[in-house]
């Protein structure tokens, strides 16, 4: 049961794709290209993955308030987070969203981890690229009539505590709407699922470089 007016969006056939370049980046290739054998394996994985992906997303509009320094109110209670405050400051409202590409990726990675670990790893990376792509599709659709908005921001970024996954889960009713569940340790199943907030109504600024926000200096993907 949700406190918000939550809408559902189901991906049409062929609407989600994997983004090879991103997947390759997740696989640790910084400036290098995979060799031919790996490329071939990636293509094979892509084909298998696309057969089991099914996209769903849900979202709700909410008001945003900034009651005090480093505190943001997204309609489900006050959140203490410097990074979120900085990201959303100036927004009058926001969209809470959740998206998933379904349980198929989890099943494929589990299967291949037993018989061909390289494929398991590649499918995992491709799955990440696909859910991000699907989020982009939904985000663009939701913001196309918004003059001003900033990019999506998720619990776990910067000091926006992962604990708030529970709020996203509850407000967006993700278990019923998307089949996405939270573990006691706040991990989502299906693994390739995303929750995020998109701020509306402030000067569009480039929030694109998520690495700037993130505090993990040791991350291998850090730009």
């Amino acid at each position: 049961m949700s406190d918000f007016t939550v809408e559902l969006r189901i991906a049409q056939k062929g609407e989600i794709k994997t983004v090879r370049q991103e997947a390759v980046r997740y696989l640790g290739y910084k400036n290098a290209n995979p060799d031919d054998i790996t490329e071939k394996l990636i293509s094979e994985c892509e084909k298998e993955l696309l057969q089991v992906i099914s996209g769903r997303a849900c979202y709700a509009h909410t008001n945003v308030k900034f009651p005090s320094e480093n505190v943001v109110d997204l309609g489900f209670g006050e959140i203490l987070s410097k990074s979120l405050h900085k990201h959303l400051y100036g927004c009058h409202s926001a969209i809470l969203m959740a998206a998933t590409i379904g349980i198929g990726t989890d099943r494929l990675t589990a299967k291949y981890s037993r018989i061909k670990p390289a494929k398991s790893l590649i499918i995992d990376a491709l799955g990440s690229s696909a859910v991000e792509y699907w989020c982009d599709v939904v985000e663009q659709e939701l913001t196309k009539n918004e003059k001003l908005h900033c990019s999506r921001f998720s619990a776990g970024y910067g000091d926006f505590s992962l604990e708030h996954q529970k709020d996203f889960a509850r407000c967006l009713d993700i278990s019923r709407k998307l089949g996405v569940t939270l573990s006691d340790t706040l991990l989502m199943t299906p693994a390739k699922s995303v929750t995020a907030v998109i701020g509306l109504g402030k000067n569009t600024r480039t929030c694109g470089n998520k690495c700037q926000i993130c505090t993990n200096q040791n991350c291998i993907y850090r730009d």
Binding site: G28, Y29, A32, P34, I37, L41, A118, L121
Partner: peptide, 14 residues
Amino acid sequence: EKTVFLPQLLMSAD
């Protein structure tokens, strides 16, 4: 040395 990447490492291991 970052001339071989994780997928290759795993394929070779396999």
